[in-house]
Write a protein that binds this DNA or RNA. Sequence first.
DNA 1: TTAAATGCAAAGAATTTGCATAACA
DNA 2: TGTTATGCAAATTCTTTGCATTTAA
Lengths: 154, 154
Amino acid sequence: MAGGRGYPSVMSSTVEELVAQLRDGGSRVTTARRLVLTALVKGADHPTAEELLVAVRALAPDVHASTVYRNLEELERLGVVVHTHLGHGAATYHLATEAHGHLVCEVCGATLEAPEDLFEAMAEGAKRRLGFELRPYHFAVLGVCADCASEAEA
Amino acid sequence: MAGGRGYPSVMSSTVEELVAQLRDGGSRVTTARRLVLTALVKGADHPTAEELLVAVRALAPDVHASTVYRNLEELERLGVVVHTHLGHGAATYHLATEAHGHLVCEVCGATLEAPEDLFEAMAEGAKRRLGFELRPYHFAVLGVCADCASEAEA
DNA sequence: TTAAATGCAAAGAATTTGCATAACA
DNA sequence: TGTTATGCAAATTCTTTGCATTTAA
């Protein structure tokens, strides 16, 4: 599944494949960079730069925050990583192959990944009526999750 | 547009009506507070705290940024004002009666107010399928505007 | 060898907070 | 008069930048 070439873009990437993308993009492969990618592939779902730093430092204690930020910037430039704002705090990062919309509860902070087709009608309407091409992944869409809504009723 | 003639009165607030809301909420009415409201009613469309500060200082030069932030916080608590993030920079503020969704172009930064019904299908889908109640006003939805899209094609 | 990446310190933007003083109700 | 709000400085949070040194290719 995560092994061979030619898999659909939404499937998971291995660290070695991502490292190859770095090399193809003309970037060097360093310990810190490899560890950032490893944390993105194997770690929790919506890590902040700070959380990635902690993961990286578990294996390379001297890596500095600015290195993680610079690596993430470079990885975004190469199209390997994207970042998303889920709320007022720090940005969260994930692999570009895992890009998706986010719904975040204003009450409890829960983060849902939006089904791929949820934005479809809106994207179609924005395109037809305004000529505006939606890329609705960068900021979360806020609201109130099912649990908090039913609690508010009670 | 909100505030224009011919709309229901809830759409167009005067400074005095907003001041009354402050009093009703148990807050005091100060010079700085009145000037913040005036700037929101009469000033440009999506002011940042900094821009509001400049407007306030035109008439009351000693007002400090922290006062503007504290006033905006209080006005949000009372439901008079809401803030929105249009991009990576400072938050923008407007009257709660003027709440609307925003579409922001990632290329040129242009800000469109989203037609009220653009989010409807998505809100309905999120509610039915996930129980999630959309409040899509807090973060802008990014994309590429008509002008920038046609330029990219050329 | 040499351009790219790093570590560190320091700066930066946006916002918040502590505290003594001022002013609305 | 008694809170509430203000001015000011300082702190916070997240992120970026300058520069001397190290390292991958």
